[in-house]
Each structure stands twice: as C-alpha cells, then as structure tokens.
Design a protein around this nucleic acid. Structure first.
Length: 911
RNA sequence: GGGCGCGUAGCUCAGUGGUAGAGCACUAUCUUGACAUGGUAGGGGUCGGCAGUUCAAUCCUGCCCGCGCCCACCA
C-alpha cells in the first residue's frame, strides 16, 4: 500500500473544504466565458441584503442553485452563476442607525446625509466581505469575478436609465396620493411592505349632531381620533333611516366645522355598524376614494410621526394618546353612545413593526398594469414557467389585480431619484444634473436657473427588479449580456415572488423584450423540526456556518443546548447541502433537524470509506479502462453497471424536472443500498485475485466509483472532489467539478440480468433471515439447501452459487430442482420462487419455527383470499386491463404453491 | 371575503388508480481487514372522517373535521 493512497478512516470536512475551494478558485473553475461556443446556462444569485449575514434560507438558495449550475457545467454548458449583494435601502439604513445608537455615535441627522452614507458604505464593505466568505464555506461555485452590487457604478447607470425611460414613456409619474406611511421610519412604503395583522380593537359609536336640527346621526369607527379630519358623513342612499338627511350638514364635534351628509352606496354597508360612516379622506383608503368621488376637502391631521398636527387641544399628541383623549372628551360631552369590542386588521411596517398610517403625500409611482400584462402573457404563453406549478394561481391573481407601485422612499440610502426641480416646482427627469439643466433651459427656464434634485431614493425592489439584466451589463449591449441574457432559471423563496420576481419579469420584458428567465423555481421556508419559524426569541435558529464548521457550547441555540451541551462538531458543507437538497421537495416548507444532517454526514463518510476501501485494495495501481476488460466482467459487475446506469438516468431526469430532492434520494440509495451494501461486498473476494476476473473487478469498481463521484459532485462537491483527486484514474480534467456528467450510461443497462440477479439477492437475504431469527452467529459457517421447481431459477442460482456462499457465509450450499422435502431440525423459509432450508440440528426452537411458519401462512392465506375474490369478480376479469388480470392470476398461482409448501413444512414439524 | 396547500409508521416526510415507501427513532444481534458516522435481521400504518365515481380509491370528485400560508382599503 502506498502512502498517498491511504485515507483517514473517517471523513473530516475541516481538513478538506478550504483547500479544495481554493483549488477551484485558483483553477478558475467557476468562471463563465463570454462569447463561448458552448450553450450558456445562467443563474443570478438572489442578492443577499447587506444588512446581515447568511442564514439557513440563504444556504438553501445557494444549495439548490449550486446543484443546478454544477450539474449543467459538467453537462457541457457554459455555466455562469453570478453573485452580488443588495443595498436593501430601508433595512440597511435602519440597521446602521441602530448601530450608531448602540455605539453612542451621533445619529443620522446630526451626521448629515453625506457622512451617514459614508458610514453605511463602511458597513456594506464589511458585510459584503462576510457574506462572500460565508458563501465560500458552503462550496458555492459563484463566479466571483463578476460579483455585483445594486449600487455599483454600472448598476446605478442601469437604474437611472430604467427610471428615465419609464418616465419618458409615461409609465412613471409623480402624484399626490394616499400612500402607506411608516411613522417609525418616516418614509412611504409600497403595499407589499405592509403586513396586515389582526388586532383586537374597538368600535366606537359617536353621536354626530345634525346641524340646525334636533336630530343626530351616530357613526361607528375604529379610529375616533381621525374625526378631526372628517370632511363628510356618508349613509346609504337607500337607507330609510337616514336618507332624509342626505344633503343636510353635521356639526362636527370637537371641531368648529360643518360637514355634509352624503349618500354613497359604494362606501356604506347597510348592515355594518350604525349604517353611517364618518369620512376622513386623508387618513383612510376607502374614504380617500369617497373623497375623490364627491370632491371632498382632504384634511391632513397627522405629522410624519403620526402626531396630531392641527392647532388645538390635541396638537402634538400621538395618534393613540389623542384617541384616548378624544374618547374621553366625547364621553364627557355625552356624545359617546357605546363601545364594542371589534377585531380588525391593521397594517404594520414590515421593517420597523410600527403601525402604518395612510398618508396623503406627493410620491413617484410606476404604472404597473401595462408591464404586468406582458409578464402575464409570458407565463400564459409558456415562455416562462413557474415550478412548482401551483404557484401560478397566486401569480396570476396578483398580477391581474396589480396596483400602481409607489417607488419613492424618504430615505438616504439608495438610488436618489433622478428628478430635478426648478424654482416653481418644474420637474425635469434626466440621467444627471447637467442633462436636467439642458432640459430646463429647453423648456424656457433661465440659463442660470438653480435646480434641486429630488431628495428621495427609490424602493430597493426597483433596482433589484433590474438584477438579471443590470448585472450582465444592460443598458450596454455588453458581451456578457449577449452571452448570458436571458438567464435560465430564477431560483428563490416563494416569499419574494411578488416583491422581486414579478418586478424582474415586468422590467426585463419591458426593456429587453424577453423574459429574464425561462423558469421560476421556488422553494419553501425553513422551519425548525417541529414546524416553528426559526427566530432568535424561540432559540431554535440553525446557523448554517455552525453546521458546516461546528460550534462551541456558547454558540449553540437554546433549543439544542440539551442535546448538544458541548456544541456541535463540524458536520461539513456537503452534509448540510445534501440535507437541504434531499428535503426540498415540492417547494414545501422544510422542517430541518440536526439529526437529519447527521444522517447525511454519514453518507459523506460512507462514500469516503468506499473509496478508502478501493484505494487500499488497488494498492496504487491504475487498472485498465473498462472498455479493455469488457470480456472479463462477470454478472456481479454487469449488475452494478446496469443499476448505475439506471441511477444516472433517473437522477438526470429528476434534475431536468427540478426535482432536486428526488435526484438526491436516488443517489443516496444507489450509493448506500446498492454500491456499498451489495457490490463492494461482492467484489471483495475477487479484487486481489491474480486473474483476468480480478483485474476486471478492479476496473469495474473504479469505474463505478468514478461515476458515483461525478453524480454526487453537484450535491457534495467537497468530499467527491477530494476522493476523486486521489483515484488512480486517467482524468479528463484537473477537477471533478468540470468533468463530464455521466448522464447517459445506457449501454450498461441490462434489465434481464437485473431480474435474475435479484434471485441471488433473495437467496442471500433468506439465509440471513434464518440466521438472525435462529440466533446463529454471523461468523459461524452454516450449510443450506435451496429448492426450486423453476429451471430458470435453478440456472440463475447455480450460476451465482459462489456469491450466495460468500454473502450468506454458507460453506456447504446445495441447490436443487425439486420440491423441498419435509425435514425435521431445519429452519425453513418459503419464498415465492424458492424454498430455503437451513439444517440446525440441536439449535432449532420448534415452537419459534412453528410460530414463524404460521405467521407466514396466515399472511399468505389472506393474500390468496384477496386475489381469489378479485378474480371471481366477473366485472374485474372483464373490465380490468388484460395484463393486470394475468398478473393477478400468476400471483395467485405463486401464493397457492407457497401456501402448500408452508402447510407441508408445518406438518413435518408436527411429525 | 377570495386563493393555495397540508393531514400516510413514534418523528420528519416521499409516493402511486391495481402487492403501502424512505430517513431518523425503536428491538435483537455482530467490533468480519472500507465505514460502529458501520453490518445483518426485525417490529410498527383501517394512508384525517363520511359519501360518490370505478371492475378496483391512500390516489379522482364532493362534503365534513383539524392545521398552515398568501392576497384583500371589511367604517
């Protein structure tokens, strides 16, 4: 045995991962080639937010995308997987502001815009580095030479270009509207950034006096404080209780104003509350629409922090304080009729958690309907498919009901809106200040006019929406854009289907005429093993890097402390990747457990040891290629080759259909249950024989191992590469990760051989079962007899006698074409096509044997009756397909014969 | 209010119109020269309930029960 051919007895990822990753980097294995002759395959990584570090969800994204990209790269494609980070406007600005506060540094406003942005850039650089290193740790084959950032120079250009063009086309406009406002963050939000939560509130019934009358009108509201901004009361025009009041006025309590009573069938639901609704157009979306319909005054009563703005007793109070005070004042005045508990849904800011206020303000919007129409067309027409298909329903529902998108944010961190204003509010949208000035002059403004740029920045998702094209060079028609655009697959969590994927589809199609990808591949959310959301407060977070590199006792989350008080060992990137891949079925949520990862770590170790075995036995020699020793292969070899060919085909098909979990499971069971459990055991006696068969077995073992490593490489890139590098093979490439994908091994398929070879496996398992049930030590050689009445079975078993003897440890094995004679002092196993008899003189426990036979007999009897019943049903025989009927008949014959043998043996036992 | 999904072994989940599966856990046994992160064998399921379609339903249809998620401006 040569020194270099030995492997340690257990796979230790820590010894391997960093070295292998650097090897790939040095060999530029990850880089896509612009202008390549090969067909391209492109995925852009969903850019992580620079706010933080990678969590387990990112690990899933990276795993699934890396598997696809590594597979396609091996399969001959010019693969590009492009990394980058997202500036994540609101989130990052918030995190950095919090960080400044934590360090007792001056806050954002005292720093000023420029200095603050500088601070954010420091944060961004630090985080980007960290995210990059974390990506390395997971083994991601990202093309780092093409790494992008949503605010790098080229990307800024893309964003400006997109904004200016959409504006020129009339698809971006500025308008005063009611928008979602975050009083905590002092910025507008898009509809999607508002989370609606059910809140237990109240319905206050307030008495509104009708002007110049003794009558009153009681309104019901969940927000009494907004009555300061009421500009009407609405009733249903058909409501007999109130319709005589329409056209009259209300003396609005607590305000010195009169407001009209109107009839509005759209706003008012006769059944709800009192049937009379106070209308506050500046603070409620429905009321806003009503205000538009009736041309009502819109009174803004709240400032940007949601405190009362109006002069008077409530000025400066927060909305909730004002509510208390107003309710109290109304009560004192005898105007509070009653208060009912009432559940309703309240919008909360997705980032800060504060209650979102509808706020009237001047903002920029995208007219999304024309853009969405084309995205719908692309998915309807099949140019872009959504996997899994069930997400199409939600996709269409959302796309078809899309609302205009508020894209301006009152933040500092982000792409500043390329609009400049003249002294009288004239607005000029341009790529830069000087172009804006040109436009201003062209419009007739003075040449010395001072223009001021819009202070606001764009919604982060506006820039992310340009990610696939922008990262490849758009708006320039760059080589990368020509080579890699449209990209192929957009893989991401289904939670950002609307936020991100929909926007990319709309923007991509609008600007390039092509959908940015042909497949939208969505995965689920990762939860803890009980299905709970992972969160710091629950202490159930699994940090991917703690899995990969291990973690000490302090780093282990609370939930795992009991189980792993000393921390976790390094389980390796391969184990984590394989786990995530194997559990990712159907785009469903993943309930992740450490146990599961441990199980797949064992797979890495299993492969490692299979290779270790091969290397030890090959003793450094390179066997001839399989093609040269074809004639010396025996059925054991042909069998595993055929099974390998099937596994390779099925795994490739699964990948083709985005069934990553299926592919992983196919490989797992081939490697473990077929290659290791059967083939390696079978090949052991032959490997070091000095014969043609011995040489052939070496060649075959190595051939299968090589293919296994290739198939496994996208899933477990590290362990497979490390082993492959040590194999005595003539290698096509310097790295496994760029070696050819063994998708087509059809020439090795041999289904007929597989079915006869299974008889050998059945015989072995049968003898082993008898051993186990009769407590015969595995080390003890026994003798056995196999009886069959089928010539073909006899021939097969005779052919594979050596294998059976070896695997079942039977020194004396007789195979006979006869009905099994009834024998005493024997343990008997009756199978469908054979009966196995193991003489156990003195060892046999008659009672246990009888119980076993009886149990088997009962089961067989039941089966028989079931089939007999089926076959005696005339309509079954008539209407079921012929092959099903034939199969049932054959089974019945088999089972009856088995039953007969079982009865014979039971009788013999009594004798 | 609308939409989507789930309910299969103790747990986490695959799956199929015609003989119910995996991993982990469990039981017994074995340290044999690849691997105890292992080997061998075993136990364990009226496939949520009810009805329908069908020769045949865990699978298709409907209803019901339980549980998730998404969308929606329900004063």
């Amino acid at each position: 045995m040569t020194e270099e051919a030995t492997l340690p007895s257990a796979y230790n990822p820590q010894d391997v991962e960093e070295r292998i990753y650097n090897f790939w980097l040095e060999n530029k294995c990850f880089e896509g080639q612009a202008n390549s002759d090969k067909k391209s395959y492109t995925i852009v990584l969903p850019p992580p937010n620079v706010t933080g570090s990678l969590h387990i969800g990112h690990a899933l994204t990276i795993t699934l995308e890396d598997i696809l990209v590594r597979w396609k790269r091996m399969d001959g494609y010019n693969a590009l997987w492009l990394p980058g980070v997202d500036h994540a406007g609101i989130a990052t600005q918030m995190v950095v502001e919090r960080e400044l506060a934590r360090q007792n540094l001056p806050d954002r406003r005292s720093l000023g815009r420029e200095a603050f942005i500088e601070k954010v850039y420091e944060w961004k650089d630090d985080r980007t580095k960290r995210i990059r290193e974390q990506s390395y740790s997971l083994g991601s084959s990202l093309d780092w030479s093409r790494e992008r950032f949503t605010m790098d120079e080229g990307f800024c250009k893309a964003v400006l270009e997109a904004f200016v063009r959409l504006h020129d086309e009339g698809l971006i406009y500025r308008a005063e509207r009611l928008i979602n406002w975050s009083p905590g963050l002092h910025t507008s939000l898009s509809d999607l950034e508002v989370d609606h939560k059910d809140v237990q509130g109240h319905l206050w019934h307030i008495v509104y006096p009708v002007a110049d009358s003794k009558e009153t009108l009681t309104v019901a509201t969940t927000r009494p404080e907004t009555m300061l901004g009421d500009t009407a009361v609405a009733v249903h025009p058909e409501d007999d209780r109130y319709k005589h009041l329409i056209g009259k006025e209300i003396d609005l309590p607590l305000s010195d104003r009169k407001i009209p009573i109107l009839g509005d069938a759209e706003l008012v639901d006769l059944e709800f509350g009192t049937g009379a609704v106070k209308v506050t157009p500046a603070h409620d979306f429905n009321d806003f629409a009503t205000g538009k319909r009736h041309d009502l005054e819109m009174i803004n009563i709240l400032d940007e922090s949601a405190c009362i703005l109006l002069e008077g007793p409530y000025k400066g109070m927060s909305a909730s304080d004002a509510r208390k005070q107003i309710v109290e004042d109304l009560d004192k005045a005898g105007l509070l009729e009653k208060v009912e508990p009432h559940n309703h849904s309240v919008g909360h800011c997705q980032r800060s958690g504060c209650v979102v206020e509808p706020r009237l303000s001047l903002q920029w919007f995208v007219n999304t309907q024309p853009l969405a129409a084309k995205a719908i067309e692309a998915t309807r027409g099949g140019k872009t498919q959504i996997v899994p298909k069930r997400f199409e329903a939600t996709w269409y529902h959302w796309m078809e009901n899309i609302q205009d998108w508020c894209i301006s944010r009152q933040l500092w961190w982000g792409h500043q809106i390329p609009a400049w204003y003249g002294p009288n509010g004239e607005c000029f949208v341009a790529m830069n200040a000087s172009e804006a000035k040109e436009k201003a002059i062209a419009s007739g403004l003075d040449a010395n006019v001072e223009l001021v740029q819009d202070e606001d920045v764009l919604d982060t998702w506006f820039s992310s929406g340009l990610w696939p094209m922008g990262t490849l060079g758009w708006p320039e028609n760059s080589d990368d854009l020509k080579t890699f655009y449209p990209t192929d697959v957009l893989e991401t969590g289904h939670d950002i289907l609307f936020f991100w994927v929909a926007r990319m589809m709309m923007m991509g199609i609008h600007f390039t005429g092509e959908p940015p990808f042909h497949t939208i591949f969505l995965h689920g959310m990762i939860r803890d093993e009980h299905g709970n959301k992972m969160s710091k407060t629950r202490e159930n977070v699994i940090d991917p890097l703690h899995i990969v590199h291990g973690s000490n006792a302090d780093e282990v989350s609370g939930q795992f402390k009991k189980q792993y008080p000393d921390g976790l060992p390094a389980l390796g990137a391969d184990a984590l990747r394989f786990t995530l891949a194997a559990m990712s079925a159907n785009g469903g949520d993943i309930k992740l457990s450490i146990d599961r990862i441990l199980g797949y770590r064992a797979l890495a170790n299993k492969v490692w040891n299979a290779a270790r075995f091969a290397l030890m036995r090959l003793e450094g020699a390179t066997p001839p290629p399989l093609s040269e020793i074809q004639a010396d292969l025996i059925d054991a070899d042909h069998f595993i080759l055929s099974r390998l060919a099937l596994a390779a085909e099925e795994a490739s098909n699964a990948l083709d259909n985005y069934r990553i979990a299926d592919a992983a499971n196919i490989l797992y069971s081939f490697i473990w249950n077929e290659f290791c459990d059967w083939y390696i055991e079978l090949v052991k006696p032959r490997l070091n024989e000095d014969s043609a068969s011995g040489k052939a077995s070496q060649a075959c073992l190595l051939f299968v191992l090589d293919k296994v490593l290739k198939l496994l490489s996208p899933f477990m890139p590290y362990v497979s590469e490390e082993i492959w590098q040590k194999l005595p093979l003539d290698k096509e490439t310097s790295s496994l990760m760029v070696a050819p994908w063994p998708g087509n091994l059809q020439e090795h398929r041999n289904e007929k051989l597989e079915s006869t070879y299974r008889l050998m496996q059945e015989a072995v398992t049968g003898i082993r079962t008898i051993r186990a049930e009769s407590n015969v030590a595995p080390s003890k050689e026994i003798s056995a007899q196999i009886y069959t009445e089928d010539e073909n079975v006899l021939a097969a078993l005779t052919e594979y006698k050596t294998e059976v003897q070896h695997l079942a440890k039977t020194s004396d094995l007789q195979i006979e074409c006869a009905k099994a004679p009834a024998q005493k002092q024997c343990s008997v196993k009756v199978l469908n096509q054979m009966t196995i008899v193991v003489p156990l003189a003195g060892l046999i426990d008659i009672e246990a044997e009888r119980a076993r036979l009886n149990k088997n007999r009962e089961k067989t009897q039941q089966e028989c009756e079931k089939i007999e019943k089926k076959l005696s049903n005339a309509s079954f025989v008539e209407r079921a397909p012929a092959d099903i009927v034939t199969r049932e008949k054959e089974r019945l014959a088999e089972l009856s014969s088995k039953l007969e043998k079982l009865n014979d043996n039971l009788k013999a036992l009594e004798a």
